[in-house]
């Protein structure tokens, strides 16, 4: 029974992945020819919900990404047992706003989860995300045991060729990647691509096998997020990714939205660099991902809209 379901899901998943890959590539090429459609939107100066509202409108609205009846996953960073003001996790208000918007766009269900680092129940609770997402109408998925993960192939990966990915991503029609912008001791920065570490089971393998390469490898997974929404409302500029005190946090009030994961991370890094020096080449997973042609680091080559509130 379970095996059959699994095979079905895997099959559907791969079809969905293949179908999705196409329009995105087409979309990427055609974007320059279709005026009015932004490739990246950067917003600054508002509360999370306000920035999100303005940003998603400039991207063409959630209906451009979530179709009626689709199963959606919203994947925030809930890695740590920390309250929202520590900025170790994605802002709960932003997560709630996205969930509501997906449901308004006609999503049949919205699932929120993360493979946490600290004890999962404490993370879900103290991040404020579980409560906010549930109140907004999302389902919270469990992700603390290997049982919830299924192996997928990453044919493009150089070091990471297979990964066990959370079943809700595999089963979803679309997923939205909602990282928080932080300094990171190992990966230097954590943004959209680094947020993939919360959809896989075995993170230790990444650390042991060229972390930067594995981050880029995983971003080649066929089912890509339809949107990457980088939360930079509060950013952790030092002692990341867990942080010690609120002294590590700066209220930056910004947000970056793009379907191009490399562009989203490039923009977020350049923004972060104004607070604390961070070189592109040190965060080498961005360049490595660009080499896979899954996105661009050249922000001048795409249509960017900057919104100040």
């Amino acid at each position: 029974m379970e095996r059959r379901n699994f095979l079905k899901a895997a099959l559907l998943g791969s079809i969905a992945g293949a179908v999705q890959l196409k329009p995105e590539n087409v979309f990427a090429r055609e974007s320059k020819e279709a005026p009015g459609q932004n490739d990246l939107v950067a917003v600054m100066g508002g509360e999370p919900e306000v920035m999100y509202k303005r940003g998603i409108a400039a991207m063409g609205g959630m209906k451009a990404f979530v179709k009626k009846g689709q199963k959606v996953v919203v994947k925030p960073n809930i890695g740590w047992d920390k309250k929202p003001e520590f900025a170790a996790n994605t802002n709960p208000q932003l997560v709630a706003a996205i969930v509501k918007d997906c449901l308004a766009a006609g999503a049949s269900e919205v699932v929120v989860f993360d493979h946490t680092c600290d004890e999962w129940q404490a993370c879900y609770k103290n991040s404020g995300i579980e409560a906010a997402a549930k109140a907004a109408g999302a389902k919270i998925a469990f992700a603390h045991d290997e049982k919830y993960y299924k192996e997928v192939d990453l044919p493009m990966g150089l070091r990471l060729k297979k990964a066990k990915i959370h079943e809700s991503i595999i089963e979803a029609d679309v997923w939205i990647n909602v990282p928080v912008l932080k300094n990171h001791g190992g990966a230097k920065m954590t943004m959209s691509m680094k947020n993939y570490m919360g959809i896989v089971w075995d993170r230790g393998y990444w650390h042991a096998n060229d972390l930067q390469q594995c981050i880029a490898d995983c971003a080649t997974y066929s089912k890509k997020p339809v949107l990457n929404i980088v939360d930079a409302y509060r950013i952790m500029t030092q002692n990341g990714p867990k942080g010690k005190t609120t002294n590590d946090v700066v209220l930056a009030k910004a947000m970056f939205i793009s379907s191009d994961i490399v562009a989203a991370d490039t923009a977020a890094l350049k923004f972060f660099n104004q607070f604390r020096e961070m070189k592109m080449e040190d965060v080498s997973h961005i360049g490595k991902a660009a080499k896979f042609n899954i996105g661009t680091t050249d922000l001048d080559s795409i249509k960017v809209e900057r919104i100040k509130i």
Binding site: H184, G185, G186, A187, H207, A208, L211, K242, K244, E281
Partner: peptide, 26 residues
């Protein structure tokens, strides 16, 4: 392996572990 890791630093709650520059490869 001469690759980035920092998993320990990531989990350290007191920052008894910090990551410092090492070698010339960043």
């Amino acid at each position: 392996d001469k690759t980035d890791c920092g998993a320990c630093d990531e989990h350290c709650p007191t920052k008894a572990i910090t990551m410092i520059p090492w070698g010339d490869e960043g």
